[in-house]
Nucleic acid binder design. Structure first.
Lengths: 239, 239
DNA sequence: GCAAAAGTGTTTTGCGTACACCCATGC
DNA sequence: GCATGGGTGTACGCAAAACACTTTTGC
């Protein structure tokens, strides 16, 4: 805020309520990876305007919580998970973006290992949707999703965050499929493996895949010890 | 917003005003380039809590304008300029970020050619500050500035937006000084020239610098015809 | 033994980087 | 003529990209 804000707010509070008819929400694009597809967790909209359309998970921001906390709360309430990877992307504030009134929303995306919380979805109208199959969503949630996906795509090029979408132990094939699913491209297997080993992000856990109808691959885990608080020590190009 | 928003908003409106005590603002980091330095346009804060501190230019968002419009309005009102380059960066929503109440702010940065509007600043308490010299600002404006600068740095690596900071015609020396000022690094002159010519962003206008105490350099302008709506047709690495 | 995916190296190419000398102009 | 920055080309190193065959396992 620039000049005379204190005065401005006090004036507004007493003189009219105009400025306080704006509500603020957060919307979470919750990404998961399953069956070699990138998926998003959606909920059935119960607004008449959007009957039978799917929408992102969101809620109004409470006066006593900051934006990040609001997103964490939405995730915790809906998936039961805390300790998830969460990143703010963009704030959407078009005047007519919400039919019920002026609601400005800040979009976050989140990366979740689907298998970690499959059990907790049963009593909700929640479903995982492959991003390829999502053509329309309630509100302006489709452009919000697109924006978050783009951000994710550019983020994984340099930062080791995709591991949040995978189980603790994974094969290089799974990791590559994940990159291919997010970026929408095919990659060369040998170059992919080479690059990841060079980066030193992976630790060989000396185990093999189980129950695969072909030669089992080795399993790896993400080397968390090389990264402080989930951030890469150096920028490294991935794809 | 996820489920039952209409109901939620109506409930909130009638039951209590709690959720409508959040105000929303925009704050603009207005960058300019002058004297081989990157500068930011700041205004003297008139809040007692921040006496004699500088702050970004911002204002509350009105109920009938979207976020981008609010930023444009702030810029127009303060600098007289419209048709400026503007980009949303991040939304800051900490509960205690503003002493006068709960105010969530969306940060934008803007790129301006300082010479275009020097005349319009006289009646305001506005000044251009070299970013190097800014150590503290009112509110949380210093981290906001830092965030915007980082975003700008990463943006110019791939997108031809710095031309908004330069006059229509400029020398390669000026362009390179600008990149160096934004990124905070020294660059090799020959490599810099080579890369820019390869990119094809520049058009030789067949003029030379005037009034320089040495051999005058050629002047160029940005080749707008190769870009639609200010965006690069391809991503190209700059530095 | 056959299907299916794992695992492995080399070559080529383009790009970034480092680096030094002559040129044009103003004073 | 001298100081100042303008203008130019080459060589090296690295990293990305292209590319094919052998190995292991389940059935």
């Amino acid at each position: 805020m620039g000049t005379a804000l204190q005065k401005t707010i006090q004036q507004l509070r007493s003189e009219n309520r105009e400025y306080f008819q704006i509500a603020l929400s957060v919307d979470c694009v919750i990404f998961g990876f399953d069956n070699n597809e990138l998926k998003v967790l959606l909920i059935k909209s119960d607004l008449e305007e959007f009957n039978d359309q799917w929408s992102l998970l969101g809620d109004l921001v409470r006066p006593d919580e900051n934006l990040d906390n609001a997103s964490y709360r939405v995730l915790k309430d809906r998936t039961g998970l805390d300790d998830v990877y969460l990143e703010q992307v963009y704030t959407f504030g078009d005047v007519d973006r919400h039919p019920a009134g002026r609601v400005i929303t800040t979009a976050y995306y989140s990366l979740i290992n689907i298998k970690d919380h499959q059990l907790k979805l049963q009593h909700n109208e929640l479903h995982w949707h492959p991003i390829q199959e999502i053509t329309t969503l309630a509100f302006d949630h489709k452009p919000i999703l697109d924006t978050c996906l783009k951000q994710l795509q550019s983020k994984i090029e340099e930062h080791p965050i995709v591991f949040n979408l995978l189980p603790e132990k994974f094969s290089l094939r799974e990791l590559q499929s994940l990159y291919e699913a997010i970026l929408g491209v095919k990659m060369d297997r040998r170059n992919f493996r080479k690059k990841f080993f060079l980066m030193g992000w992976l630790v060989d856990v000396n185990e093999l895949e189980q129950d695969v109808p072909h030669r089992p691959g080795k399993l790896y885990r993400f080397d968390t010890s090389r990264f402080s608080s989930g951030k890469a020590t150096k920028k490294m190009a991935v794809s």
